[in-house]
Every structure is written in C-alpha cells, then in structure tokens.
Design a protein around this nucleic acid. Structure first.
Length: 590
RNA sequence: GCCCGCGUAGUUCAACGGAUAGAACAAAAGUUUCCUAAACUUUAGAUCUAGGUUCGAUUCCUAGCGUGGGUACCA
C-alpha cells in the first residue's frame, strides 16, 4: 500500500474520531524545501466540514498520525499546512524498492489494446526542417512515454506523396533537371527535390510577373500561369496512371525517402508502419457515400457533399468536391478507418500535428463519431505550437527555413568544439569521440525542444546557439557521466541493504526517485514529454547538490559509503530511463 | 468580423486552486592541493489590465488590451 493511501485512511479515521466527520479527499503535496517535513497535508480543505482553527486541527491530526502511523515520526504545522516527517526506516524501504527494481518506473506489461501514434507525416517535395524536428521528437517521445506507462503502441506516419505540390517539383525537374540525380550531384535526395520545388516557384513567379505586365489581374495571373496549368495537367495524368509520370514520380520519391531515412536515423526516430496518401486518398469516398445515404452528410445543388456541424458549435464543412474528388479531410477519414481495419487491437490514436490544424481535427473527430465509430472517442490531437524565428514564421520561399540536417550538424559541431576545449577524453578513439559529440549535440537539441510544454510555441533564434550549460541536455548527460565514473571506481560490493542515518540531501533524493513512476503516468496522461524533462532536471539538481556537499568514497562509515554508491547508481538509472523516454542517449564519459 | 491558443524577471522556460511565484541564460561575487568546474554556492530581477468566484487565484469565470493561428472546395 502506498504511503498516501495509508495516510489518507489514517486521516479519515482520525477526523472521524476527533470531529465525527467523514472526509472523502485528503489533499497531499510535497513539502516545500524551506520547511521541515517530507509530505504535507493541506488542512484548509477540511474547513468546509470542520469548523475551527486550521492550526489546531492540524496539530491534533499530526499527533494522531505520529502516534498511529509508524512511518511518521514527527510533524509541524504552519498555517493550514501539516508537514509530516518520515522515519529513516521507511525511506530505506522506499529506496531499496527503487534500487532493486529493474527499470524502476517503466512498465513492462503492455496492455492488449494498442494506441497508434502518428507523427512526422512529411510532404515528399522538400526536406525536413526545424518544424518537423519538433513534430518528430514530440511524437516519438509521447509514443515512448505511452509505452512506459503500460500501453502497447504503434508508431506510424502518413506520407503525403501525391497532389499538386508534388507535381510542381516533378514538373520543374522534368523541365530543368537534365537527368540530375543524387549520385550525379552529390546531394541528398530530399535536398535535390527540394531545390526543384523552389525552382518551380521561382519560374512560376516570373510568369506571373510577366502576366501582370500585360495588364492581367493578379488573381487571374496566378491561375493562368502556364507552369501551373502544366502541373495541373500532370496531376491529372498521375491520377489516370500515366506510365511516364508514374515512373518519374516513383523515381523522385525513392530519392526523397532515402533522404528522409537518413534524417530520421540521425534524429533517432522510427516507425512501425507507414501509410501513403497515394494509397489512401480514395478511401474516404466510400465512407462519405455511405454517410450520405444515412443522412449524416448532405449534398448541395452543385453536387458537393457537406456536413452540418452547427449543432456542435462549428459550421458546415465540405467533405467531397462537386467534381467528386476528395479533399484533405476525406482522406483523413479514410485513413483512420483503414488503420483500425489493419490493426483491430487499436483502441485509440494520437495525431501529432501543429496547432494550426486544431479546427481540422475537431471536425475530423466529430465526423468519425457521427459515423458511429466507437473508437472515435479515443482520438487525440497532440497539438503543438509552431517553431518561430525572431522575425516570425519560417518561410521556404524566403529561405528562412532552418534545415533539419544542417541544424543537427551544427549541434554536433558545437559539442565537438566545447568538448575539445575541455579535453577530458583521453583514451577515446576518434570514432568514439565523434559518437559522443553526436550524443551531446543531439541531447542539447532534443532537450531544448522537449522541455517546453507542447502547446506553447517555441522561439528559435539561429544566431544564439542552443545552450550546453544550465538547464540543458548536456548538463544532465554530464551528471550521468559523472555517476558512471563513480561506479567505475567503486571496486567493492555494494549490493547489500544497509541501514544508515540519512543525510538531508539523500532524503530529498529518495523522495524524488520515489516520484518517478507517477511522473511517467502523468506525462502519459497529459501527452507531455516536458513533464519528464522537468522532473529529470530537478532530480539532477538534487544529485549535484548532494554530490557537492557529501563525500562518497570518503564517508565516515563503510555502510554510508555503500549507501551513497547505491543512491548514485539509482539516480543514474532513473536519469537514463527518463531520458530514454525523450530519445536522448547517455554517455559514460564526457 | 467570428472561432481557437498564448500573455510570468532583460531573454528562454517552470509552478494538480495552496505556503515567501521556481530555474536557466545574460549581469555581479565566490568555490578546484578533495569522487569530472559542461558543476556547486551567493546577490539583484517578473505574474498584461480591471472586475468576479474562493479560506486561498499565475491557474477558474467575465470584460478589455496585446500577440499567434484558423476561417469552408490548399494539404
């Protein structure tokens, strides 16, 4: 039984005896560090049922708990807060559980039913950028957190591999490409294709300007530019299965996927299943047709199909164009249904998509619910804020996009330079060093992004590089490396349980370690890696403070030495577990 | 216009409705004959405004201001 349950039940008994009232809830919080105590009961919340002075009530309750609960050895009351002090014996019991549990806090038993987590979902006409990095890190991390909380998880993405934007880069390549290839240019496939997408837009703009000079209105010019018409023709050909267009499409997509694979690998993310829009874009149409028969959708005079969501506080939304072609949401309806068909054990899905699409997902979930799918209640839009630059949104046309590969490369270079200045890596081979620089650079980047509450936007200033000191990934990695160094030196057996007096710094650490499983559950419920990041930071601060003020190998007693090594190891293990949920690797030295 | 976010030190981020609003960076000062100074210890500095609910509000409600996004056949 957890200590909170014990205290709750004892408190209920005490208040029944003392005041003849039955209280349902007992509110606990961690004792603030400026007061003595390990856990705090908020007495204020009893005042509704017990008329009286909170300090008196707290004192009476404190006395009762001290006398009747063995874990509680002392207490003090400050205003309406009852601070309880735990016995060393209890803390030793807590610690031994942490120390002896493999992967403490990480659930090993997965449930039968699964959650599908979608993230990344790139377009195949340009390389991944900083926005995708946030998306990928978030999605990956949330998937790992859900697993750690005891869920079975499938990671997936929907690759947007068709549509007019894809044809634009294909057309530009076809016209100006001279049969270039990644091999002939030495460019990554996605970069090569991205260049042609940019090229399309340049040429397109030239044509518009020319039309404007001829006195045609801007609106018309945009629609009449020959390049756009050609791209539209190409899309039609693609849909008709034109052999030549399809071959070009396949070739270019292959290049892009190879490029993406390399970026994903460097980023450390992976997927269990890929869905392709080219396979799924027609799926939703059938569903819409059936929904039309059931009266869930309605047809307008021009033939387009709509859903009226005004009863739900939204407005009307189109689900099929007048010409019968699918819109964005049609495809999403189909894809969702297809996924449940493919994986019947999936009970819910998480969509990692930016908050600019909040409305879209509200509508999508509502439509699926109206269509009668019971899993529609378990859909969650993991909506995150945009990554903005100081001057505003990233814009590919203005060349202000922060490229994912470039950024990762810079992070590694910064890590290399800092590390070389410090010069602590004697005995490491060059490849070991390079691997370490990568770990640290990526640690800095990932932590920087994930420590922020997902729904908040991130301001990224490329001129100010991401920190490596303070509340950062490398700070935490450094602490881990220092712990590993301690453990390497501990050439004695420290596996047995010891009962020593617990130092205040140690006491704080044990309580923090105890919290980890709850933090994981909480992070899973809130879909928030930031909670893991913040927890880990606090734990590491606590450890560094302990490390600074308490000597480990020069402890007065042998048992103290053993206990401190154990504590260090437990902290190291929890840090590593926590960071693995963020996708951050831990170095043994740095 | 309407709808949805967000607004906390100079900057970047924290705070289940709880105690004197925490950190980090930047600024100022200190700690290495001692387990890794990417560390530790100090100092200075903030809740957009006005109401309301509550024993208690950064948090919940209302209005305003600022800011970002969406707004029906782009994905």
């Amino acid at each position: 039984m957890s200590i909170q349950k014990i205290l709750r039940s004892a408190t209920q008994t005490a208040l029944q005896q003392l005041y003849k009232v039955g209280v349902e809830n007992v509110e606990f919080q961690a004792t603030r560090k400026e007061f003595e105590g390990d856990i705090t009961i908020v007495v204020f919340s009893f005042l509704r049922q017990i008329k009286g002075n909170p300090v008196e009530i707290g004192t009476q309750l404190g006395n009762y708990l001290k006398d009747n609960v063995v874990e509680v050895v002392d207490f003090n009351v400050v205003k309406g807060f009852l601070n309880l002090v735990f016995s060393d014996a209890y803390l030793h019991t807590v610690f031994s559980q942490v120390f002896n549990t493999e992967q403490y806090g990480i659930s090993k038993q997965a449930e039968e039913q699964a959650i599908m987590v979608e993230y990344s979902s790139p377009n195949t006409n340009k390389p991944l950028h900083l926005g995708h990095i946030r998306n990928n890190l978030l999605g990956y991390s949330v998937a790992e957190i859900l697993k750690a909380a005891g869920n079975k998880v499938y990671k997936t993405q929907i690759i947007n591999d068709r549509g007019i934007h894809i044809c634009k880069s294909m057309l530009a390549y076809h016209k100006y490409g001279n049969d270039e290839s990644p091999e002939s240019t030495g460019l990554k496939g996605d970069k090569l294709i991205g260049n042609y997408y940019v090229r399309f837009n340049q040429e397109y703009k030239k044509q518009i300007d020319k039309l404007l000079e001829e006195g045609i209105s801007e609106e018309k010019a945009k629609k009449q530019a020959p390049l756009l018409l050609e791209a539209q023709k190409m899309l039609k050909k693609w849909e008709d299965g034109d052999k030549e267009v399809r071959l070009l499409w396949e070739k270019m997509n292959r290049w892009v996927y190879k490029g993406f694979d390399s970026t994903y690998k460097n980023l450390g993310v992976d997927f269990d299943i890929n869905y392709y829009e080219s396979d799924t874009y027609l799926l939703g149409k059938d569903v819409v047709q059936k929904g039309l028969e059931k009266g869930i959708f309605f047809k307008k005079p021009d033939g387009s199909v709509w859903i009226d969501l005004s009863d739900d506080g939204l407005d009307e939304k189109i689900v099929l164009r007048a010409d019968g072609t699918a819109v964005y949401i049609t495809q999403d309806i189909g894809t969702a249904i297809q996924r449940i068909k493919d994986y019947p054990d999936v009970k819910g899905m998480v969509y990692t998509v930016g908050n600019e699409q909040d409305y879209h997902f509200k509508v999508l979930f509502l439509i699926l619910k109206k269509l009668g799918y019971k899993w529609a209640d378990n859909l969650y839009h993991l909506s995150y804020g945009m990554v903005d630059l100081p001057e505003g949104k990233m814009k590919s046309r203005e060349g202000t996009v922060v490229d994912a590969d470039d950024l990762m490369c810079e992070m590694k270079a910064t890590a290399r330079s800092i590390s070389q200045d410090l010069g602590k890596l004697e005995g490491y081979t060059d490849s070991e060093k390079e691997n370490l620089y990568r770990m640290i650079g990526m640690g800095a980047l990932k932590y920087y992004i994930l420590k922020v509450d997902p729904k908040k936007r991130i301001l990224f200033n490329p001129k100010e590089s991401i920190d490596f000191n303070g509340n950062t990934g490398p700070f935490i990695q450094y602490t881990y490396a220092r712990i590993q160094s301690l453990l390497r030196r501990a050439d004695f057996d420290y596996s047995q349980r010891v009962n020593v007096n617990i130092h205040p710094k140690e006491r704080a650490l044990i309580k923090q370690l105890q919290d980890f499983p709850d933090v994981v559950q909480n992070a899973a419920q809130n879909h928030s890696p930031a909670l893991i990041a913040n927890y880990t930071y606090e734990l590491v601060k606590g450890f560094n403070s302990f490390y600074q003020s308490v000597s480990i190998f020069a402890a007065a007693q042998e048992d103290e030495k053993i206990f401190r090594v154990q504590l260090s190891q437990a902290v190291g293990n929890v840090i590593q577990s926590a960071f693995s949920l963020l996708g951050i690797e831990m170095p043994d030295r740095m």
